[in-house]
């Protein structure tokens, strides 16, 4: 309804950031990637750093992140975003560098790059979108897939005896000395979105201090991979993802 402005004296209280393109996202209806993209771009716009920011896109559903984020972007081979971001930030230490990676990208094929990048304390921000599944390739099991979760490669549910335990990458990297700020957020409710945006802001602010890596996990939904409708995916996330991946800070500067 474009013409519903019957009220007078209206103040603009929210509009999408200019750093996010007007191109329609290719994501499925209800997918959390869209919210995560928007929040990162809101922070970049609010800090006025769009000219100084370089993002590294992953392989996964968000492989086209560079179509939507109106900052300089570099595509990396599957799982290698942290390694590419390391190179960029070392060559251009005055830039704000971030990676945007799914759980298949960051916690499966890219596990080594991720752990060593954080362990070295590279001054980058890592945004880790955990939807407990390989979305792009058709909903296969990821290291982050929950126990008993049904996926196309665990049709009877993930059995830990045969398929291992869900990998909590965020808890793991929080133990590394190079990690400066580690937090787990989500984007499924208005409040979660507000908190997530603060965490993203912190991750960018801490880059100025040259003290190490900021790691922000964003627990997200994949309605298509989970085979539920968008509204049910929010409930599924709350009932199943959050008990395994509880939200909150794991490492905060000055507190650990």
């Amino acid at each position: 309804m474009e013409d519903n402005t019957v009220l007078e004296d209206l103040e603009l209280v929210y509009e999408k950031p200019h750093t996010l393109s007007d191109t329609a996202f290719h994501y499925c209806p209800g997918c959390g990637h869209g919210v995560a993209h928007r929040l990162i771009m809101e922070v970049v716009e609010e800090m006025g750093i769009e000219e100084q920011t370089i993002g590294v896109a992953p392989v996964g559903c968000s492989v086209f992140a560079y179509h939507y984020m109106m900052v300089d972007m570099q595509e990396a081979a599957h799982g290698r975003a942290c390694a590419v971001a390391t190179g960029i930030r070392r060559l251009l230490p005055e830039k704000y560098v971030f990676t945007y990676q799914g759980d298949g990208d960051l916690a499966a094929i890219g596990t080594a790059e991720t752990i060593h990048t954080v362990n070295r304390g590279e001054n980058i921000a890592i945004f880790f979108i955990n939807n407990a599944i390989y979305g792009m390739t058709g909903g296969q099991m990821a290291p982050t897939t929950l126990c008993h979760q049904i996926t196309s490669t665990s049709p009877y549910g993930r059995e830990v005896e045969a398929m291992g335990h869900p990998l909590k990458m965020t808890d793991l990297v929080a133990h590394l000395p190079g990690a400066y700020y580690v937090t787990r957020q989500a984007v499924h409710t208005p409040n979660a979105v507000r908190k997530c945006k603060k965490a993203i802001r912190n991750a960018f602010e801490y880059q100025k201090l040259h003290k190490g890596t900021s790691f922000v996990e964003i627990v997200s939904n994949c309605p298509s991979g989970w085979r539920v409708n968008p509204a049910d995916s929010i409930k599924w996330l709350e009932d199943n993802m959050l008990p395994m991946y509880p939200l909150g800070d794991l490492k905060v500067p000055g507190k650990n």
Partner: peptide, 24 residues
Amino acid sequence: TGCTNCALVCPDAVFTVFRQSKSS
């Protein structure tokens, strides 16, 4: 009420939100 909740959770950034100004 222009609370912005819809804009916060929208995955496709479709909302622009307005609120009546304090003066009015």
